[in-house]
């Protein structure tokens, strides 16, 4: 195979790992609370600024900046739920989605006020790794591994803890949960905080690869929604797999055309998939 194509595929898989985290976060929140956080990418943006600020301005070690970023964005997710979504829980779904859409402007505006519109770079670069004929970016590889670890941690939590099991249960039947002593409001809060935390983790992995600016959410937000829908809203495994599929589509599309066209192709694929499998690729 053409080494450049191979490289594109490998990069696509690495990219999919980074897409996977926001997709898991969105699916978690959607599955539990039944709301699509339209501002999810902006939560990631705030996390990126958080790491950038702590590392380059406050002089924190990078690892510590990462460690702080997770709970900060997790808290932001919780705040988003409590302040914006919770008062609207009994409203039509569209108003909930739109309210989180309004938060896009709030977060973009806040970021601009705090840090201006300049592109901010972390200035961290790892040497590329050469395997056979292809070069793999060290940062991307580390990000990929970290994303898989994050996804694994989430899976472990959902599979083996009481709260995690309750989260998987509530996605199917929220009315019956109080009979088991589960307070749905608490579960909503936990899911929102974890959803935010995943955005924080995604932020850590993205900020080493991309410059951060207030509108960066727009560059990967839409595709994360597409991936979620492709995998089936609320379907964690489906979303996880679709993330890699989309990553490869984008990456190989970039190999044949250019980056923008690759996104056009990816979105077009998405629409076609929706027509073929309206409930997602992996709907049962």
């Amino acid at each position: 195979m053409d080494p450049f194509l191979l490289e594109a595929i490998v990069n696509g898989i690495l990219l999919g790992g980074v897409f996977a985290l926001p997709v898991l976060g969105l699916n978690l929140v959607f599955g539990v609370v039944d709301v699509v956080w339209l501002c999810y990418a902006e939560l990631v943006m705030v996390g990126m600024y958080c790491v950038w600020f702590l590392y380059t301005q406050a002089g924190f070690p990078l690892a510590l900046a990462f460690l702080v970023c997770l709970p900060v964005v997790g808290l932001l997710g919780l705040l988003l739920h409590q302040v914006v979504v919770r008062p609207l829980l009994n409203s039509p779904p569209i108003t909930q989605v739109l309210a989180t859409g309004g938060v896009i402007f709030v977060l973009q505006g806040s970021a601009m006020l705090a840090f201006g519109t300049d592109f901010r770079s972390l200035g961290v670069e790892m040497p590329p790794i050469e395997v056979e004929d292809i070069f793999i970016s060290g940062t991307k590889l580390v990000a990929f591994v970290a994303a898989l670890l994050g996804a694994g941690a989430l899976w472990t939590f959902l599979k083996f803890t009481y709260v995690g099991t309750a989260i998987r249960a509530i996605a199917r039947d929220r009315e019956v949960m109080p009979l088991m002593g589960v307070d749905p409001k608490r579960i909503y809060m936990v899911a929102s905080a974890i959803g935010g935390g995943l955005a924080g983790l995604a932020a850590c992995l993205l900020v080493v690869q991309l410059d951060v600016h207030p509108y960066i959410g727009l560059s990967f937000g839409p595709i994360t929604f597409m991936i979620c829908v492709m995998g089936g809203l609320g379907n964690m495994l489906g979303g996880f797999l679709a993330a890699f599929l989309m990553g490869v589509i984008v990456s190989t599309g970039g190999f044949w055309w250019n980056t923008e066209m690759s996104y056009v192709v990816a979105f077009a694929c998405f629409i076609v998939v929706m027509f073929a499998r309206p409930r997602g690729l992996f709907a049962r």
């Binding site: 896009i104 402007f105 709030v106 977060l107 973009q108 505006g109 806040s110 970021a111 601009m112 006020l113």
Partner: peptide
């Protein structure tokens, strides 16, 4: 105050 406008708009 660049950003104040979208912030207030969003709120």
């Amino acid at each position: 105050f660049i950003g104040a406008a979208p912030l207030i708009y969003g709120i």
